[in-house]
Amino acid sequence: MLIRHRHSIRPSEITPEKVFRNRRQLLRDAGLAGSGLFLAAGCAAEDDSPELRKLDVKRGSPFSTDESPNSFEDIISYNNFYEFGLDKSDPARHAGKFKPKPWTVTVAGEAAKTGTFDFDDIVGPHDIEERVYRFRCVEAWSMVIPWNGIPLGDMLKRFEPTSKAKYVAFETVVRPEEMPGQRRRVLDFPYVEGLTIEEAMHPLTLMAIGVYGVELPNQNGAPIRLVVPWKYGFKSIKSIVKITFTEQEPPTTWNLAAPREYGFYANVNPEVDHPRWSQARERRIGGGFFDEKQPTLMLNGYGEQVASLYEGLDLRKFY
């Protein structure tokens, strides 16, 4: 545990899927059930939420990295999801009461087919793909995560956006009774995010509904969340209930909270530091005590695919 190198975890050693079938077993394996707080929350969670359903996933995407993914335990126990609290251990503790089923998503704005759709109607027609992506938080840590989802563009096309649809805005659910973090106005909830239509339609951009072959745990943004791997993690909005096609750039939560620190674009960029810390290097989670930070890659290493989206754009100004 002390000196655990992520490179020592081979893909073949990834937590077997049968482990996910049993939530209680999972919590024990994660070594978290030992803490009294978590145990209490975990028990409450167990009564309310069913076990995580296994997904039928198409593997082998050319967009997937061959880097070793983080463990399922890391991915479900180290989260920034302020709706469930500010500590990165809070979402795992406090997300047990959240009910991601049933779920609807409202589609609005500049599109031919708008309205409120059931989760199954939105997701059903698509194949679920595995995409193993690097995930870089603006706080200078990172993971490698095997997401399961649908290319966002494929999903959005079904709503037939009009020529006026220049941006896509997303909104997280507001349920203070199930999301204790929303009872305090640390951020201006609902959490909102947005992409340009080109970014949203890019084949790398994923609407995730699962991770590691099972549906998303609550703390990871169940039941449906965005994953934009070349942008800082806060762009990848969780538990989405509304998608709006807009002509104007939509407001985004962290930009509203601290405009000098967080821009609309939020592309991973080692050359543009956060005003309070360097973005040149990142700590890969799971490396243990003596692991050195690694250099952060331009556009999180996805420059080949997405750099053309930003030609002629001054990334220092549009951070």
Partner: peptide, 8 residues
């Protein structure tokens, strides 16, 4: 108590 995924 575990130090969590980011012990440092």
């Amino acid at each position: 108590e575990s130090l969590g995924p980011n012990p440092i």
